[in-house]
């Protein structure tokens, strides 16, 4: 009974703490929201802003397709076959395997993050910025944050690519030394 009561107190405290932090987050977001001048600018340039977002949206889709092809190619046509060949030759390619595994995980993250960003940008473009400029701006800020996450994913992949090259160079050096 006492433990049940303790658990209830703990649960209520946890919920209240969560609510306080959530409230804090919301108010922090509110404080960085749009100014009156920006409201006026968004209303006045609504179609222009939406046209710009449309161009960004289309270019991003193209970039996603082109980059996606290259990312896939690096993994499935280069890294995986070499790892397999090293294993078949009974050589130690564990460092390469680790980097490839990280790369594949980060590639999955990139796909997910891009999807989330694209959905957010599309949702932003659907908002009527003449009648709901504040909502439009909030959505735009969300899209920016999600784009930043996609950018970070892309940079992580670039870092994995460099790391794989480093692991490969090390592998090749040790192989040549043994021969």
């Amino acid at each position: 009974m006492t433990s049940k009561r303790l658990f209830s107190v703990f649960a209520i405290t946890a919920v209240l703490t969560g609510a306080v932090f959530a409230g804090g987050t919301v108010s922090a977001e509110d404080s960085s929201t749009i100014t009156d001048l920006q409201l006026v600018q968004i209303r006045a340039r609504c179609s222009e802003v939406k046209a710009t977002l449309g161009r960004v949206h289309a270019n991003d889709a193209l970039l996603r397709v082109n980059r996606g092809q290259l990312y896939e190619r690096l993994s499935t046509k280069l890294a995986a076959p070499l790892n397999s060949r090293i294993a078949l030759n009974r050589l130690d390619g564990s460092a390469l395997l680790t980097v490839t595994s990280n790369y594949d995980q980060h590639l999955n993250d990139f796909r997910t993050h891009y999807q989330t960003y694209e959905e957010q940008l599309s949702a932003t473009m659907r908002i009527d910025c003449v009648n709901q400029p504040a909502k439009f701006y909030d959505s735009l800020q969300d899209a920016r944050a999600k784009r930043q996450i996609v950018n970070e994913s892309s940079q992580r992949l670039a870092s994995d690519i460099a790391e794989y090259k480093q692991a490969f160079t090390e592998f090749a050096r040790s192989y040549r030394e043994k021969k």
């Binding site: 802003v49 701006y137 930043q148 950018n151 090259k165």
Partner: peptide
Amino acid sequence: TASQVTSVNTFESGVLSDEALRINE
């Protein structure tokens, strides 16, 4: 292939900035 992938910084956040959309203060 790696040089093709890493040649350009992609999805940089500047294109959605207030300045780029001309809605700055």
